[in-house]
Structures are given as structure tokens and as C-alpha cells.
């Protein structure tokens, strides 16, 4: 087996020799990124914290630097409707046992969809500047809006 100028052997790509025949149901591996370490057959029944993520999984990466505004979560007003969970495009709402636990700031891009779909009055999620501290934001929370009489 020659490595050639491209160094195919080094890159882990198998060259087919004359004596080596591949059957129709054998696939030569291209580039494979494993999402998990070890056995991943039960992933659909595991929470994120129970999984063994490989370094290739984007769960281990962060896009926090994309944000200029961030959502802040107020547990006292939340009714656990899960609207934010279902419509979060970045899998950043942490929800366990039908309860909303908080926001995953590693994966949140600050789009603000969760705030828009929040049905409570006042909203239990609001957007604040990225630099603002959590406690400071919670202290500024608006009062309940009264219904305007028609």
C-alpha cells in the first residue's frame, strides 16, 4: 500500500489493493465524528447530565460570545408552561421533570424568542444587557401590568 503524495495512510483512509475486495455491504469509513464516548445506544433515554459527550459534540462548545443581550429568568413568576423550552432554537432552556430550571448561558445566542413566547404577566423571562448581574436584573423586574379598561 503506497501512501502517495497525499499521505492517505496517515489520514486514516484505506486504499484498496488488488487482493483486497470490499463487499457490497461493507462501507469504507470517511470522516466520522463521534458525538459520544463509548456506548451511545441509550441516548434517547438519558438527560444531558447523564450522557458522556465526546469533544466533537457541539454541547462541549459555546456560542456565548454571540450575545449582546441575555435573557434573565425569574422563578417567582414562572408557571412552567414550557413555551420557552419548546421554541428555544438553541436547546438553552433547561427543563427537568416538567419544571423550568434556568437558562444554559453556554448555548444561548440571545435571540429573545423565549421572552416573546412567555405568557405570564409580568413576563418571567426578560432581556437585559449582557453585562448586567443576575441580582441587579431581578431587582429591576417590572410590576404586574393592569388591564386597561375599555
Amino acid at each position: 500500500m503506497s501512501t502517495g503524495v497525499l499521505g492517505t495512510e496517515k489520514r486514516g483512509i484505506r486504499e484498496l489493493g488488488a487482493e483486497e475486495k470490499v463487499g457490497w455491504d461493507e462501507v469504507t469509513r470517511g470522516v466520522v465524528l463521534n458525538s459520544f464516548e463509548g456506548d451511545a445506544s441509550n441516548v434517547a433515554h438519558q438527560k444531558a447530565e447523564e450522557r458522556q459527550y465526546a469533544d466533537f459534540n457541539s454541547y462541549t462548545a459555546t456560542v456565548a460570545s454571540w450575545r449582546i443581550i441575555k435573557p434573565v429568568y425569574n422563578r417567582d413568576i414562572c408557571i412552567d408552561c414550557q413555551n420557552c423550552w419548546v421554541w428555544c432554537p438553541d436547546t438553552s432552556i433547561i427543563s427537568r421533570d416538567k419544571q423550568m430550571l434556568g437558562i444554559d448561558y453556554d448555548h444561548c445566542k440571545g435571540c429573545g424568542v423565549c421572552v416573546e413566547v412567555c405568557p405570564t404577566n409580568p413576563k418571567s423571562l426578560l432581556m437585559f444587557s449582557e453585562a448586567k448581574e443576575q441580582e441587579e436584573a431581578l431587582a429591576e423586574w417590572p410590576e404586574k401590568k393592569k388591564k386597561e379598561k375599555k
Binding site: 434517547a44 438527560k47 457541539s58 454541547y59 456560542v63 432554537p89 436547546t91 453556554d106 448555548h107
Partner: peptide, 13 residues
Amino acid sequence: NDRFEGSHLLCPG
């Protein structure tokens, strides 16, 4: 249990 992870590079929203 989510099987589509965050930190993909799609636009916000």
C-alpha cells in the same frame, strides 16, 4: 431528552 445540541451556528432565532 434533546438529541439536537446547542452551539450550532444557525442564526439567533
